[in-house]
Amino acid sequence: WVQCTKPECRKWRQLTKEIQLTPQIAKTYRCGMKPNTAIKPETSDHCSLPED
């Protein structure tokens, strides 16, 4: 599990088994990010989705 770092969101998201949760990902994670590439989402507001 990882928490969105966006102050107005802070929702918890479940990561897939393939993703290694590192301190860097935990510090920078935003809803919809692909942690294995550290690319921020380009599409709609993933923070608007219900918490996992």
Rank of each mutant, 00 (worst) to 15 (best):
W1Y: 14
W1R: 02
V2R: 00
V2E: 00
V2T: 00
V2N: 08
V2L: 03
Q3V: 03
Q3H: 05
Q3E: 01
Q3W: 00
Q3P: 00
Q3L: 03
Q3F: 00
C4P: 00
C4V: 01
C4M: 07
C4R: 00
T5R: 02
T5C: 07
T5D: 02
T5A: 02
T5M: 08
T5S: 04
T5G: 02
K6R: 11
K6I: 11
K6T: 10
K6Q: 10
K6L: 12
K6W: 03
K6E: 08
K6M: 14
K6D: 15
P7Q: 05
P7Y: 05
P7C: 06
P7E: 06
E8S: 15
E8Y: 00
E8V: 00
E8I: 00
E8N: 15
E8W: 01
C9I: 00
C9P: 01
C9H: 10
C9R: 03
C9A: 05
C9W: 00
C9V: 00
C9G: 01
C9T: 01
R10P: 04
R10C: 13
R10Y: 06
K11T: 03
K11V: 02
K11Q: 06
K11A: 07
K11C: 07
K11D: 05
K11I: 07
W12E: 02
W12T: 02
W12L: 03
W12Y: 01
W12G: 04
R13Q: 10
R13H: 08
R13L: 06
R13I: 05
R13Y: 04
R13K: 13
R13F: 05
R13A: 06
R13V: 10
R13E: 14
Q14E: 03
Q14F: 03
Q14P: 02
Q14M: 08
Q14C: 06
Q14L: 10
Q14T: 02
Q14Y: 02
L15K: 03
L15I: 14
L15S: 07
L15C: 06
L15Q: 04
L15P: 03
T16F: 08
T16I: 03
T16H: 10
T16N: 12
T16V: 08
T16K: 09
K17I: 00
K17P: 14
K17E: 12
E18I: 00
E18D: 11
E18V: 01
E18M: 06
E18H: 13
E18S: 06
E18Q: 00
I19K: 05
I19T: 09
I19P: 08
I19W: 15
I19D: 08
I19L: 09
Q20K: 14
Q20R: 05
Q20T: 07
Q20C: 05
Q20M: 05
Q20I: 04
L21N: 07
L21Q: 00
L21T: 01
T22S: 10
T22H: 07
T22L: 03
T22W: 03
T22E: 06
T22G: 03
T22R: 02
T22A: 02
T22V: 02
T22D: 12
T22F: 00
P23E: 05
P23C: 02
P23M: 00
Q24R: 04
Q24S: 09
Q24I: 03
Q24W: 11
Q24L: 14
Q24Y: 14
Q24K: 08
I25R: 04
I25C: 06
I25Q: 15
I25F: 15
I25S: 04
A26F: 05
A26K: 15
A26Q: 14
A26H: 07
K27A: 14
K27I: 09
K27G: 08
K27C: 06
K27F: 08
K27P: 08
K27N: 04
K27V: 00
T28W: 03
T28H: 04
T28Y: 05
T28A: 07
T28M: 06
T28G: 04
T28K: 05
T28D: 11
Y29I: 08
Y29W: 06
Y29P: 01
Y29K: 07
Y29V: 02
R30A: 10
R30F: 06
R30E: 13
R30Q: 12
R30K: 12
R30G: 04
R30S: 06
C31I: 08
C31N: 01
C31E: 02
C31D: 04
C31Y: 01
G32E: 06
G32T: 01
G32D: 04
G32R: 03
G32Q: 04
G32P: 07
G32W: 01
G32N: 04
G32K: 01
M33I: 11
M33G: 06
M33Q: 13
M33T: 09
M33V: 04
M33D: 09
M33R: 04
K34V: 15
K34S: 14
K34E: 13
K34W: 13
K34Q: 06
P35C: 14
P35D: 13
P35G: 13
P35Q: 10
P35N: 05
P35R: 08
P35E: 12
P35K: 04
N36L: 09
N36A: 09
N36D: 14
N36K: 10
N36G: 15
N36M: 10
N36C: 06
N36T: 10
N36S: 13
N36E: 11
T37N: 07
T37Y: 09
T37K: 10
T37L: 14
A38C: 12
A38E: 14
A38H: 08
A38N: 10
I39F: 15
I39A: 13
I39C: 15
K40H: 15
K40W: 02
K40P: 12
K40M: 08
K40S: 10
P41H: 08
E42A: 09
E42G: 12
E42N: 01
E42F: 10
E42M: 09
E42L: 08
E42I: 01
T43R: 12
T43A: 14
T43G: 13
T43D: 12
T43M: 09
T43C: 07
S44I: 12
S44P: 12
S44C: 10
S44W: 06
D45V: 11
D45E: 11
D45H: 07
D45W: 07
D45A: 11
D45F: 10
D45Y: 05
D45Q: 14
D45I: 07
D45N: 09
H46T: 12
H46Y: 15
H46L: 10
H46I: 15
H46S: 12
H46K: 13
H46P: 10
H46C: 13
C47P: 05
C47N: 14
C47D: 10
C47E: 13
C47V: 14
C47L: 07
C47W: 07
C47F: 04
C47K: 10
S48I: 09
S48T: 13
S48E: 13
S48K: 14
S48C: 11
S48G: 14
S48M: 15
S48A: 13
L49K: 10
L49P: 10
L49R: 13
L49D: 07
L49I: 08
L49V: 14
L49Y: 06
L49N: 08
P50W: 08
P50I: 04
P50Q: 10
P50E: 06
P50D: 12
P50S: 12
E51S: 11
E51Y: 05
E51L: 07
D52F: 04
D52K: 09
D52C: 11
D52T: 15
